[in-house]
Design a protein around this nucleic acid. Structure first.
Length: 836
RNA sequence: GAGACUGUGGUGGAAUCGGUAGACACAGCAGACUUAAAAUCUGCCGCCAUGUGCGUGAGGGUUCGAGUCCCUCCAGUCUCACCA
């Protein structure tokens, strides 16, 4: 039996003592492999094990191939759970966080992950967030960080802003209180300044999954159209609308504005005030938004149609018009827009058709085809022609202009929270908004005994002096959204101790990240923010690259079946006993029903603790199992049976080693059969190399298992020892990235017995010999009318004529006297006879 | 409502360019070893069944040949969701 406990701790100790995973040689080819950093919530979960096993296999692969691999790890350590823990367990967020980090670091080390721990940091380290404040001020100087009033989700119990995803059915996810829409002055980051570049550079990301590129493209949401100005009857004001279909302007029958459009301020009718209040209350959840009934109210004003003198169209306030998209106003053309059509029906507004196409009588008519009608000078044009023509006309007359709008909004970063990076700003009555001297350090003595932001309640911290006039001033008490920290940590790993946020030469050496691995749930926000930071930091001179992550692998979720008792309560897998086809509770004996496979989550209790797996089976076994059956990008279904199989395989490897150690080499000589086994090894070696390059690690494992059987055959067939040792070198080399402990142990033990050296101390990647990939025999498949009828083995240099004849001989009895009408010959593969 | 992706044995999954469907594993079955068990080893393992059979969600098409390409439909998963 393979003594995994002793072996694993031995090698982990040795790796650490030898600093095996720190970068020794800066002249070699650099390669940066990175996995998304974890939130230190307490202990690691299976998702971490999967993410980091994939990353570690790739890091070890490239290291073994001779690259100087940067493979760091750190902690995304700011965030709300630390404050919740402070309230529930009376622990200081800092204490809680660092103690969790301690636990999780120990766990990651127990998995044998090859991180360069000398570069580790937590984003809540004073050094890290202090330098982040420098970046914030750089953004501020460039106008990329600014304060604006915006509508936010405000939780009245928590006294804090909530992110959209923290609002569930209109209530705060934790307090359960009805969320209010509130207008607050908040710090925002001008990500929209980079919208066009963020969109265009998606083209450069050729090694990103299409799905993620598409999601980012949709998120940025570029729309090309026009601004059109409408004069208001009886007012000096003007309403500007954004539209992507300016050519349908002659079909306009109303203008609709958002409930918070500036024009509303002029309206005094109490009924309108009521209506706006109603709109405010209705919003919040996304599904509700989508299914919400359209409601509108006439503002009491009409707009003058810009192109039809004397024609007036009503101005409505409508609940479905978004105040922060476009101009917060639109014109409705019911004939060619479903939403406008619906609205027109509701309020009996006219429907004017302006696009015609044969056999398309029904309204609303929505398509890119047809030609313009009822539209004066646009009549007869295609939609594209009319689009250009009307924009030119509007610009000429000063009625409007070409305009591009993005769905992407600026990034609101203020949070009324303690456990985050303080926004380094002070407010002085005399001098206004001032940059704070850095670093702005979080005070330790805070209390969480009342709602709201502890920084705001702190008796002294908030009060300071203005750095310009030395007069009294107060600090900004909001902290930054924690996505801020994860937007540049990958640059910091290149220079974790430097006194500047990012040291350009060090960063230029390793960045951009060659391979970034993490969950699909970060497809938009984190990855978009990180891309934005990279571009902004480039423009500030910190880095010299456009994109942070060359290749992206989004690994699938780890899933497990769910169990429920008769009352519908979730039950942990460890509490379930299986008897044949039925399941029962291990202590109460109650009947348990099997639910569907779902992502492992604490709330459904369908979790398996990685620590239990490491304790019972060892790190190599856990790593092997999680990499073996499922491609990294697909969801992984956990089942304990597979784990036993992996344990058996490790034992098998260990036995293989022992049989080699006691191998009797006397009187053996190489035969053709041995040579063929060697060829098999080289063929497998080629495939394994290819699969590693493609990060299809489940196939790497499958092919390695095949290679193991070939070596066992070679031993059974008494192949010469040097040949067997050579085969084992291949196998150990290819398995080492996946199961590092056992492979190092076997290498060491065989090195004592013989003279094998594969990867320690100096890595040599085993490369197959192309000569040995060639076959002197080729198998041809014989088909009749495309159906398989047999196969034949011919010498590799056989000519087409001979092969065909041999095949024909083989199937003559099957086709009897049918005439052969055609013969298809595919070199090296098959012969197909077409008969009538 | 819009879009994207996926669909292969009891299960996870293989199958370069359209060329032997089911690699590798899990589960299962039978046997060997053993006083016995564990471990290990050997064999079997898509279906009907014994053949010119059927079979990659269903139906059609292109082709000498389709899991792979095209069309229609069904199911599931995910993303976006009044974006003017």
């Amino acid at each position: 039996m393979y003594p995994f406990r002793a072996v694993e701790s031995k090698w982990q100790k040795r790796f650490e003592e030898n600093k095996s995973h720190q970068i020794a040689d800066f002249s070699k080819n650099p390669c940066y492999i990175l996995e998304m950093l974890p939130y230190p919530s307490g202990k690691i979960h299976m998702g971490h094990v999967r993410n980091y096993s994939i990353g570690d296999a790739m890091a070890r692969f490239y290291r073994a191939k001779g690259y100087s691999v940067l493979h760091p790890m750190g902690w995304d350590a700011f965030g709300l759970p630390a404050e919740n823990a402070a309230m529930e367990q009376k622990k200081h967020p800092k204490t809680w966080t660092y103690s969790n980090i301690e636990t999780m670091r120990t766990q990651l080390k127990a998995l044998g992950l090859s991180y360069d721990w000398s570069r580790e940091f937590a984003t809540c380290d004073e050094l890290y967030y202090g330098l982040e404040q420098k970046i914030f001020l750089d953004f501020y100087d460039k106008g990329l960080a600014y304060r604006k009033e915006s509508w936010v989700n405000f939780d009245p119990v928590e006294q804090s802003v909530l992110a959209n995803e923290q609002v569930i059915n209109g209530r705060g996810w934790r307090s359960g209180a009805l969320v209010e829409r509130k207008k607050l002055t908040q710090w925002s980051i001008k990500i929209t300044a980079y919208a066009e570049e963020l969109l265009n550079d998606l083209k450069k990301l050729t090694k990103w999954p299409d799905k993620v590129l598409k999601m980012q493209e949709n998120w940025i949401g570029k729309s090309v159209g026009a601004h059109i100005h409408f004069n208001i009857d009886g007012s000096d004001d003007m309403i500007t609308v954004f539209t992507t279909k300016p050519h349908t302007l002659f079909g306009a029958s109303f203008v609709a504005i958002a409930p918070h459009h500036p024009f509303i301020k002029q309206l005094t009718d109490p009924k309108i005030k009521d209506f706006i209040g109603e709109c405010d209350r209705m919003i919040t959840t996304e599904e509700a938004m989508a299914t919400m009934e359209k409601k509108g109210m006439w503002s009491g004003y009409d707009a003058q149609h810009p192109l039809i003198p004397g024609k007036k169209i009503p101005i409505y306030i409508a609940n479905f018009v978004l105040s922060d998209y476009g101009t917060g106003a639109l014109f409705g053309c019911p004939a060619h827009d479903t939403r406008d059509f619906e609205f027109a029906h509701l309020y009996n507004l006219p429907v004017h058709r302006v696009i015609d196409e044969v056999d398309q009588e029904n309204l609303p008519f929505i398509s890119n085809g047809g030609h313009m009608i009822n539209s004066d000078f646009l009549n007869g044009m295609s939609q594209e022609q009319a689009f250009e023509a009307i924009i030119n006309y509007l610009e000429e007359k000063g009625f409007g202009s070409r305009h591009v709008t993005y769905r992407l909004r600026d990034w609101l970063v203020s949070r009324q929270r303690y456990w985050g990076c303080p926004i380094p700003i002070i407010y002085c009555d005399q001098c206004g908004t001032q940059k704070a001297p850095l670093p702005v350090v979080l005070p330790q003595d805070v209390s969480f005994d009342r709602p709201g932001n502890p920084l705001d309640h702190h008796p002294t911290w908030k009060y300071t002096t203005c750095s310009t006039c030395q007069g009294p001033a107060i600090r900004e008490t909001d902290t930054l959204d924690t996505f801020f920290e994860s937007s540049w940590y990958f640059l910091r790993y290149c220079c974790p101790q430097d006194s500047v946020p990012v040291d350009s030469p060090k960063c230029d050496h390793f960045a951009p990240v060659d391979l970034y691995i993490g969950g699909i749930e970060h497809a938009v926000l984190h990855l978009l923010y990180a891309r934005f930071f990279t571009k902004a930091l480039r423009d500030l001179g910190y880095v010299h690259m456009d994109e942070p992550f060359q290749e992206l692998l989004t690994q699938g979720m780890v899933c497990h079946v769910t169990y429920q008792d008769s009352k519908g309560k979730w039950v942990y897998p460890t509490d379930v006993k299986k008897d044949g086809d039925s399941y029962s509770h291990i202590t109460t004996g109650e009947k348990i029903t099997l639910g569907r496979l779902e992502k492992m989550s604490k709330s459904k209790k369908n979790v398996v603790d990685p620590q239990d797996i490491i304790d019972h089976y060892g790190a190599d076994c856990a790593r092997l199992f999680i990499l073996s059956d499922t491609p990294p990008d697909k969801d992984f279904d956990w089942n304990d049976d597979g784990l036993d199989g992996c344990g058996r395989y490790l034992n098998r490897l260990y036995r293989l080693m022992e049989s080699i150690k006691s191998y009797n080499n006397e009187g053996t000589s190489e035969t053709i059969s041995h040579k063929n086994l060697l060829k098999k090894v080289h063929k497998l070696a080629k495939n394994i190399n290819d699969e590693y390059e493609k990060i299809v690690l489940n196939k790497v494992v499958a092919l390695c298992r095949e290679m193991t059987y070939v070596i066992e055959d070679a031993i059974d067939q008494k192949a010469p020892l040097p040949m067997i040792m050579n085969m084992v070198q291949f196998l150990l080399c290819y398995l080492q990235p996946i199961i590092p402990h056992i492979t190092h142990e076997i290498e060491e033990q065989l090195a004592v017995a013989n003279t094998l050296k594969v990867f320690s101390p100096n890595c040599v990647w085993m490369m197959y010999d192309p000569e040995l990939l060639k076959d002197d025999q080729v198998t041809y498949v014989i088909q009749v009318n495309g159906k398989l009828k047999g196969q034949v083995c011919v010498p590799a240099d056989a000519v087409e004529y001979d092969i065909k004849n041999q095949c024909l001989e083989h199937i003559r009895h099957t086709i009897k006297d049918a005439t052969i009408q055609k013969e298809i010959f595919v070199k090296g593969r098959l012969v197909n006879f077409v008969v009538n």
